[in-house]
Design a protein around this nucleic acid. Sequence first.
DNA 1: GAGTGGTCTAGACCACGCC
DNA 2: GCGTGGTCTAGACCACTCG
Lengths: 236, 236
Amino acid sequence: MDSKYISIYHEILAKIEDGEIAAGSKLPSETEMIGEYGASRDTVRKALHLLEQNGYIQRIQGKGSFALDINKLSFPVSGLTSFKELAQKMTEKCRTLVKELEKIPADEFIREQLKLPEQAEVWKAVRVRQIGGKKIILDKDFLDARYVPKLTQAICEDSIYEHLETKLGLKIGFAQKEVTVQQATQEDRKYLDFENYNMIVVVKNYTYLEDMTLFQYTESRHRPDKFKFVGFARRN
Amino acid sequence: MDSKYISIYHEILAKIEDGEIAAGSKLPSETEMIGEYGASRDTVRKALHLLEQNGYIQRIQGKGSFALDINKLSFPVSGLTSFKELAQKMTEKCRTLVKELEKIPADEFIREQLKLPEQAEVWKAVRVRQIGGKKIILDKDFLDARYVPKLTQAICEDSIYEHLETKLGLKIGFAQKEVTVQQATQEDRKYLDFENYNMIVVVKNYTYLEDMTLFQYTESRHRPDKFKFVGFARRN
DNA sequence: GAGTGGTCTAGACCACGCC
DNA sequence: GCGTGGTCTAGACCACTCG
């Protein structure tokens, strides 16, 4: 039940991804699309604007809209994508190993991250992501138990996000992320195939609901040689 | 000579940054803003939509628009900001040291990065960014000489971007970025205050003009302990 | 039911690129 | 001059929240 401009967005995006509209080639003009999709100019423009924001097309006044080279995917810190959604696009085999899963009283560090009062409870999940047979990423999740009353091993092996959105009906709004490089800990070495590296890439993630409630803190710890972030940016 | 909705965007943004609209508090409704700014609803909505995209406000259907906590700045890989613009917002003292500056024939690596033909020429600039007295970042810039005929030491010490935009009238459209962690090289150790780290954070940047011409490749090499990237992401 | 944001439409005029 | 995208307007209806 997408809105009209979202449908048009997906239709055009599919044509770009399938190569029906080649990279660098010109898209139909707005006037043509009005007829093609039976929509008003504003509706067509909303779809095109979305494509531009997401780095799929470039619009040039007086000339037209042109398809850009699609970003070959990597780890998109820029977006808000779950590991499961990512894994589905990857060719290599991925597995998720649940190492810890329990509901615990939030310690001081977690209370600070999630801005929780004393005696608040959180679900803690520690998971190892295995890619191509190697244990590469250590995910530590902390979820406010007021919003997520129950987690199971099966949910953690599949996708926490999917469970939150489809089963619990939570609406995820946005996330703040922070990437740093730190000294690896004993825990990193214990859970990951770490080889001889002494540093680790830490992606901290604060997830908010649509109503601006902070409900999840995640630390995603990546082996440095396997970390790669690809982004797209527009001027101003 | 900004458009109306950009002006409204800046006006509201200023109120949020000044704290006139506190984090978490409600903004005036669209209907009120129509009167306040003397604009149509659509124009007001364009401004609000921009604020939402950039992580300054959250809009909730049926309730209103609310100011978010402003991201304390760090190194924004997500945006397209020059070091000079960044430095102006920082409290610590910054300096730029130009180590190399010359027009050279592009070698194979650079030709591949910038998709240049043989015998093409590029301007190469190697700069060290000093923050709080320490040499932290090594910037290696390569610019297509067809678009940038002349670079001087003074320009490199100030801001290459500013020169391109104001003096040469080049219109920067977008950039593709890639962040990885690699083994540090001899060059890194030579130019930076590297202490005992053996890895370095590499931010590769491909800058395109508005007409989709790729004209600049930059490698920004950061000491791992000083690297920090902060991002904002919306679901879908 | 009143107030809010979300979608869609139709029409006008402007700025830019190109021949 | 024509076709393109960029801005602005006015009005309609829908979906959601809250009292």
